[in-house]
Simulated assay, not measured.
Amino acid sequence: MTAMTPTVEQWLLSRRSLMVAMAASLFGVFRAPDRVLAASKASDAAWDLTDADWKKRLTPDAYSVLRKEGTERPFTSALNNEKRTGTYHCAGCDMPLFSSNAKFDSGTGWPSFFEPLPGAIATKVDFKLIVPRTEYHCSRCGGHQGHVFNDGPRPTGKRYCNNGVALRFQPA
């Protein structure tokens, strides 16, 4: 057996892992859509608003992303090309999330950052595309921001790929 040929145990384990991921994804999508397609719980009780309150507070696009974990189309946000010095805030609760010093052009069509501000975000695993991804959200109101990937620049090697509609830019 060559080094490239998996053992029966490795093959079964990889197949089992794939099946578990698929089952988790299917269970989430078809069995509990409100739980899967909802923002994370707010850590600040003042931001634990009803769905109706969020709909009044946000634009339809911002509501879709922040509260229902939607994704805006790439290259549609003016913030993707924002070059000024300042701070990017959560569009839901105005919590500062990223400094313009951490912003970079990832070429993906969404505003991207290599590092959030301390304590600004929380993460959870997302199985919506079957393959697990790390989703991040505002640590105060729980609003969905985007996903973090391990293909960013130094010094962190991270790419926080953010929906522009989930942000508000505050110039310095």
Results as ranks from 00 to 15, higher is better:
130 I>W: 04
172 A>M: 01
109 G>D: 09
112 S>M: 03
172 A>I: 01
159 R>Y: 11
113 F>G: 10
152 G>V: 08
67 R>C: 04
112 S>V: 05
160 Y>R: 01
35 R>Y: 10
113 F>R: 12
86 G>L: 11
108 T>R: 01
1 M>W: 06
28 G>C: 08
1 M>C: 06
107 G>E: 00
169 F>K: 08
157 G>N: 02
110 W>R: 04
16 R>Q: 14
46 A>W: 06
146 G>P: 09
20 V>H: 13
52 A>V: 13
141 C>A: 08
48 D>H: 09
149 F>L: 08
168 R>M: 06
124 K>S: 15
2 T>M: 05
16 R>W: 15
155 P>I: 00
16 R>A: 04
68 K>S: 02
48 D>K: 12
168 R>D: 04
108 T>I: 02
96 P>W: 09
134 T>N: 03
26 L>W: 12
52 A>P: 11
161 C>D: 00
163 N>I: 00
96 P>C: 08
98 F>V: 04
120 A>S: 13
119 G>T: 01
26 L>R: 14
4 M>C: 02
35 R>D: 12
93 C>S: 11
81 N>F: 05
6 P>K: 01
130 I>T: 14
71 T>E: 07
114 F>D: 15
122 A>E: 08
141 C>I: 06
5 T>C: 03
87 T>V: 14
3 A>H: 03
147 H>K: 08
24 A>Q: 07
46 A>P: 05
50 T>N: 09
16 R>Y: 12
125 V>C: 06
167 L>M: 04
6 P>L: 03
84 R>A: 13
56 K>G: 11
106 S>D: 11
53 D>E: 15
115 E>M: 12
74 P>T: 10
35 R>P: 05
99 S>E: 02
63 Y>M: 09
108 T>N: 10
69 E>D: 00
12 L>T: 12
4 M>D: 08
44 D>W: 04
155 P>S: 04
72 E>D: 13
145 Q>G: 07
90 C>D: 14
32 A>V: 13
139 S>L: 04
72 E>N: 04
116 P>D: 07
16 R>C: 12
4 M>L: 10
48 D>Q: 12
11 W>P: 01
71 T>M: 04
49 L>Y: 11
89 H>T: 07
32 A>R: 15
165 V>T: 05
117 L>W: 02
90 C>I: 09
119 G>K: 01
122 A>G: 14
28 G>L: 03
95 M>L: 15
65 V>Y: 09
68 K>A: 07
99 S>L: 07
36 V>H: 11
148 V>H: 10
1 M>T: 15
5 T>K: 06
20 V>W: 11
3 A>I: 10
7 T>F: 08
19 M>K: 12
95 M>Q: 14
63 Y>I: 04
141 C>S: 07
52 A>C: 09
89 H>Y: 10
32 A>L: 14
33 P>N: 14
23 A>C: 05
14 S>C: 05
31 R>L: 12
58 L>W: 07
87 T>Y: 07
11 W>S: 15
123 T>Y: 04
75 F>W: 14
167 L>S: 12
70 G>P: 13
153 P>L: 06
104 F>C: 08
99 S>I: 03
170 Q>T: 14
105 D>E: 09
69 E>K: 14
59 T>Y: 09
50 T>Y: 08
102 A>R: 12
47 W>A: 07
41 K>C: 03
153 P>T: 06
